[in-house]
Design a protein around this nucleic acid. Sequence first.
DNA 1: AAATAAAGTTAGTCTTGTCTAATTTTATTA
DNA 2: TAATAAAATTAGACAAGACTAACTTTATTT
Lengths: 218, 218
Amino acid sequence: MHTLSEENYLKCIYRLWQDKGQKITPTAIAESLGNNPASVVDMIRKLTDKQLIAYDKKKGVELTSQGQKDATLIVRRHRLWEVFLLEKLGYHWDEIHDIAEELEHIKDATLADRLDKFLGFPEYDPHGDPIPKANGKMAKRFSTTLADVKAGGSCRVVAVKDTTSQFLQYLQKLDINIGTNIQLIEKIPFDNSLVISINGAEHKTVSQKFGESLLIDI
Amino acid sequence: MHTLSEENYLKCIYRLWQDKGQKITPTAIAESLGNNPASVVDMIRKLTDKQLIAYDKKKGVELTSQGQKDATLIVRRHRLWEVFLLEKLGYHWDEIHDIAEELEHIKDATLADRLDKFLGFPEYDPHGDPIPKANGKMAKRFSTTLADVKAGGSCRVVAVKDTTSQFLQYLQKLDINIGTNIQLIEKIPFDNSLVISINGAEHKTVSQKFGESLLIDI
DNA sequence: AAATAAAGTTAGTCTTGTCTAATTTTATTA
DNA sequence: TAATAAAATTAGACAAGACTAACTTTATTT
């Protein structure tokens, strides 16, 4: 299989490809990984030799079908482990990413499928990203946010859009978790602030930015 | 923390120390890891600098108290993951070791403790080895084997002493797992073969060597 | 279109962890 | 105890994956 570095590059390229569908340049990869562009050029050569990517100055970096397959599997493992860490081991949202970043590289042919089954074949990870199925297919990303809810409506938190620890710790403080019910009491027209009630508790006000970062199911 | 290699050396030294309590030489470590003695000498220097071991030509390699602590934690993680893989993901005995070998290096301050709790604080791993507690303490290894059972007696399989895939696959074939009940029907004096009944099924004959490899609880 | 800025690339270096080959030290045996 | 074998060590090399510095190519701006 691939080395740890190779897998990280693959995953990065996959993410850039999903995010924007734009041309993927060595510089973009370097920035995304926090590496030097020169190092990226080395790895591009290596991954090209392994037929996982194709690189053309005009088109930028593209994943081959094998590269897509391999990258999808890494993402699948990452997101499954995130579910495991949150649901089974009781970690908080802001702690799971880094650990899953390590766990995703554990190599075993049946591990992902067994974990998937053990977790009850979850569709989404705690960040609202769909978990690729064993065949590589996956659902669409959650897209409705708290900011889309109409005043008077209520909803259930399913995931977060922003995964910075600042946001996740703020959620912690507000006692908002996956499954938490939120009622939208009022929208302040001035700045689109949201007055909400968390699990029926007292009213609190949060910003528009906050509302747009919380993925919900109505 | 430590690199993957450092951790593997630590674990190896810990194992050699537990196994025999004899002088641990560079050559012994090299053989155990399948490495070149020259490489071992390099790593001995590195671990000595990190104050994890002490090396004296007369006394051989010894773990410092910090080294013992760190090694114990790695062993704890390894054994806990083995329990997880077997009990939760349905792997077989002969598959879990190699995967746990990777999982044991996942670095997170609370992971082992959370996993321990999730698994219900198991005392032993599927190979009968005691799982070190968070404080470093651990129970004694299981020591009664099927060969110690008297004719007419019955027992419950708790672990295996031999972890070669040949043995583990043989168990598989005989449908023997952890918790399986075995009655000892007869001991053949000629070669100490054992006539047994597995979960009350028809009689089967196994060798003395087999009996000595199966750890049981009476 | 020339000047300048940005992106991409090459060459060479460093660290980690391994190796081989050669040498030194320690143990064993005739 | 001298000769020989085994173990330990040193020196030097190599691959992976990162880096810096310098150079080239491509884009942008005036």
